[in-house]
Deep mutational scan, measured.
Amino acid sequence: TGEEYIAVGDSTAQQVGDLTFKKGEILLVIEKKPDGWWIAKDAKGNEGLVPRTYLEPYS
């Protein structure tokens, strides 16, 4: 379980453990880390770190 967020920009994984996503994708945020990198899952079930500045709450 988690909260749904929509990507407001494209982000390409810079290192192992990062999640690549495109603008408009809905991501499920699993954990919000205080350093600004959140753990999220995409629609295909891929999981990784995403920069919170690229996400907005999805409603």
Results as ranks from 00 to 15, higher is better:
K23Q: 07
L55M: 05
V50Y: 01
T1S: 13
I39N: 04
G2K: 08
A13R: 15
K23D: 03
I6G: 01
D10Y: 04
L49S: 08
G17E: 05
E25G: 03
I26D: 00
L28A: 04
A7Q: 01
P57V: 07
D35T: 06
K33F: 11
D42E: 01
Y58S: 07
A40G: 03
Y5Q: 01
S11M: 15
Y58M: 11
D10P: 06
L19I: 05
A43C: 11
E25H: 06
E25V: 04
L19C: 03
Q15P: 05
I6L: 07
A7G: 03
W38L: 04
K23G: 04
A43K: 11
I30P: 00
E31R: 08
A13S: 14
V16M: 11
E25P: 00
L19Q: 00
A40H: 00
E25C: 06
I6A: 04
I6D: 01
G36P: 03
Y54G: 07
I26F: 05
K22S: 09
T12F: 13
L27Y: 03
L28N: 06
K22V: 09
K22N: 07
A43L: 10
T53A: 14
F21Q: 01
E4K: 14
G24D: 05
K23M: 07
S11Q: 12
D10G: 06
G2W: 14
E4P: 14
V16N: 10
T20Q: 12
K41Y: 06
G36C: 04
W38D: 01
F21N: 00
L27G: 00
L55P: 01
I6V: 10
V29C: 02
I39G: 02
V8C: 13
D35P: 01
G17Y: 05
E4T: 13
D10K: 04
E4C: 15
A13Q: 09
F21C: 02
L19G: 00
D10A: 07
P57R: 07
E4N: 08
K44Y: 14
E4H: 14
T20K: 10
G48H: 04
T1K: 13
D42M: 02
K22T: 08
Q14R: 14
E25W: 07
N46K: 07
N46Y: 06
E31A: 11
A7R: 01
W38F: 06
T53W: 15
D18I: 14
R52G: 15
W38Q: 00
Y5E: 01
G24N: 05
V50M: 03
K22E: 06
T1R: 12
P51T: 07
P34G: 10
P57N: 05
L55C: 04
E47M: 14
G9Y: 15
T1A: 13
V50G: 02
E31S: 10
T12I: 13
E3I: 09
G24Q: 02
A40F: 03
I39F: 10
Q15H: 13
W38I: 02
K44T: 09
D18M: 15
Y58D: 05
D35H: 05
G2A: 11
A40K: 00
G45C: 05
I26N: 02
E47R: 09
P51S: 13
Y58R: 07
K23T: 08
K33A: 08
Y5K: 01
F21P: 01
G9C: 15
P34V: 10
Y54P: 03
K44G: 08
Y54T: 08
L49T: 11
K22G: 05
S59V: 13
Q14S: 13
P51Y: 15
V8S: 06
G2R: 09
L19W: 02
K33C: 14
K33R: 14
G48C: 04
G45N: 05
